[in-house]
């Protein structure tokens, strides 16, 4: 019993982190048709920036905010100056994979190759007792952050004018443009938001997953799996899929550690076979 509760909490907290990471990727894929492989770099660079801010100020909130905003701006610029000009998938893949390598190597030069970890806020440093088991309070915080962000995004998409504009632009870009919506600007903003969220995930995750060269590639893979399972462009899909992958990964490792990758990829293959558009994707 104890085992199942603890491992579920582990999986949920990991899944929430995956949601922060993958939500932006899903949006840019589904809404803007952009294949962005540099998304993993946003996570990594955000984590490193957060680390530097944390070391300078000792303030975790500042680390989160600066990390997310700086990478958000990086995303805005990338979309505005480069990605927007490319409509061909192959060109996008080549360009963004180039960025993946460049940002990865730049991080190695700036922050070195030694693995790093962001100090946790002192309030969430210790363990918490849940019935007879012990669980890190920080991971509960991660679950909380994930839920708050999910609600915020849902509100943004479903309850605001901006969200309505985005949905209109997705359904018919030209028609939306002719009604006076500045589609280009909208896309840039959404793209930047996605990058900022990945960076937020980087800072939050950097405090318990560590940060190291090559992590950009690892998390990109997970984000792509989440997006494929959840369906392109669906926030609800990204949320459900992220929790699913988090739980699968955790229970997979706990029960069959030798099949660590299999427990993620097998469900992905099955879902693709049954529902090629993902759980919540539209055909």
């Amino acid at each position: 019993m104890n085992f199942w509760i603890l491992q579920s909490l582990n999986g949920l907290s990991y899944g929430m982190l995956l949601f922060l990471l993958a939500a932006g990727l899903s949006l840019s894929f589904g809404l803007m048709n952009i294949v962005n492989l540099a998304h993993g770099s946003y996570f990594l660079v955000g984590a490193y920036v957060g680390l530097t801010v944390m070391e300078r100020t000792g303030n975790f909130m500042a680390a989160v905010v600066v990390g997310a905003i700086s990478v958000g701006i990086l995303g805005l610029l990338m979309q505005r100056l480069l990605l927007r000009r490319l409509t061909d998938h192959l060109a996008q893949v080549l360009l963004t994979i180039g960025f993946l390598f460049i940002l990865g190597d730049l991080s190695l030069v700036i922050w070195g190759g030694v693995p790093q970890i962001i100090p946790k806020p002192p309030l969430f440093e210790g363990p918490i007792r849940i019935m007879e088991s012990v669980f890190p309070s920080y991971r509960l915080l991660v679950i909380g952050v994930g839920i708050v962000v999910a609600i915020f995004l849902w509100w943004l998409q479903d309850r605001t004018a901006m969200g309505a504009n985005v949905r209109a632009a997705v359904d018919d870009e030209e028609m939306a443009g002719s009604t006076g919506i500045n589609v280009a600007l909208l896309m840039t903003v959404v793209f930047g938001l996605g990058a900022a969220m990945a960076a937020l995930g980087g800072v939050v995750g950097g405090a318990f997953l560590t940060i190291f060269p090559g992590q950009d590639m690892d998390v990109l893979l997970l984000a792509l799996v989440v997006v494929i399972i959840g369906g392109l462009g669906s926030l609800k899909g990204a949320f459900v899929a992220a929790l699913l992958v988090g739980l699968l990964d955790n229970f997979g490792k706990a029960l069959f550690p030798e099949l660590a990758l299999f427990t993620i990829f097998a469900p992905m293959a099955i879902i693709l076979a049954i529902r090629p558009t993902g759980l919540f994707g539209r055909a």
Binding site: V227, L232, L261
Partner: peptide, 17 residues
């Protein structure tokens, strides 16, 4: 949509490798 899934599917495979 299917085509795009194909594209990212192959990318996932590549990165997994």
């Amino acid at each position: 949509m299917d085509k795009r899934i194909g594209v990212i599917g192959s990318i996932v495979l590549m990165i997994a490798l």
